[in-house]
Simulated scan of single mutants.
Amino acid sequence: MGTTNEGERPPGPHPTGAAFLLAQLGAHAAKLFAERLVELDLTPPQGGLLRLLAGSPGRSQRELADDLGMPPSRFVAFADELERRGLIERRKNPVDRRLYAVHLTDEGGKVLAKLRKVGAEHERRMTEGLSEEEREQLTGLLRRLADRQGLSPGVHPGFRSVRAERSGRAERSGRRAGHREGVPGDGVGDGGSSM
C-alpha cells in the first residue's frame, strides 16, 4: 500500500494498536481452541480444571473455584459433570473431613494427555510464521504484560462467568445451534497454550 498524491493514507482500515491486536488474536485463539475441545467432549473451563488438578491434586473445591475465579456455588455443579463422566473424583480430605479433596481419575489423566496434544497443536498453529526465538520472545513479552495486569497464570479470566452446566454435551450442542450459554466470552484456558 502506498500513499495518495497528497501524502495521505489511502482509504481502508485504520492502523490498530497492540491492545486491539491482542484482543483480536485472543478471541480468535479462544474460538479455535474451543472448537478443538469439542472433539474431546470438553469445554475450555473443564480443560482448565483438569490442568489445575494435574498440577496440584487433592485441593478443595473452594480452592479450585478460587483459582478458576468461579463462584463456589457454580463450581459444585461444574465439577459434578466431570465426576459423572469419571474424569475427576472427590475424596474426603484426610485433614478436614468437612472438605472434599478433588483428584483426577485414571480416565481423567488419559483425557488430559489428549488435551495436552490438542494444546500443543493449537500453540503451533497460532504461532506458525514465527521462528523459535520469536515465539519465545513473544511469550515472554505477553507473560510480562499479563503479570502487570494481575492476571492469574494459566487461568482464563472468562471462567468467572461460567454457569453451572447441566451437561457438557447439551451446552456444546446449544453452541453449535447458535446459543452461547455458559461460554466465558469466547473463552478458553489460555488460548490452548501451555497445556
Rank of each mutant, 00 (worst) to 15 (best):
T3R: 14
L49T: 07
D41H: 10
H179S: 14
E107R: 12
L87S: 06
D80R: 15
V188S: 12
S167C: 06
R163G: 10
G108Y: 04
L115V: 06
R85S: 12
S194M: 08
A29D: 15
R143F: 12
V155S: 04
L99C: 05
H103W: 09
H28Y: 00
P45D: 01
G12H: 04
V155K: 07
D41A: 13
E136W: 01
R135H: 12
L50R: 00
R160H: 04
E121P: 00
G129C: 09
G119P: 09
L104W: 01
A101M: 01
E83A: 14
T16F: 00
L25K: 03
H103I: 11
G12A: 11
V38C: 02
M1W: 02
G108T: 07
M126R: 08
R143H: 15
P94W: 00
D80S: 15
L21F: 05
L104D: 08
E35P: 00
Q61M: 14
R135W: 02
E165A: 10
L138I: 02
M1R: 03
E6L: 11
T43S: 13
F75G: 10
S193G: 11
A113Y: 05
R144M: 04
A120W: 02
D66W: 03
L82N: 07
R97L: 13
R98V: 06
M1T: 04
R143Y: 13
Q137S: 14
R180W: 09
D190S: 13
V183H: 02
G48W: 00
G55T: 02
P94D: 08
K110G: 05
G7L: 15
G109T: 07
V111Q: 02
G129H: 05
A177Q: 13
G47Q: 05
S194L: 14
M70T: 12
E121S: 13
G158R: 02
S167W: 01
G178V: 08
S193D: 13
P153N: 03
K114E: 09
G58R: 05
G174E: 10
L32I: 01
L99A: 12
G158S: 14
V111N: 03
V183M: 13
E81A: 12
G119K: 07
L40I: 01
S173I: 13
L151C: 04
E6A: 14
E132H: 10
L42S: 03
G154D: 09
V188N: 08
G109C: 10
S193L: 14
S131A: 11
S193K: 06
L42Q: 03
G55E: 11
A120G: 03
G47T: 06
R59Q: 13
E107N: 03
L115T: 07
L141G: 13
H179V: 14
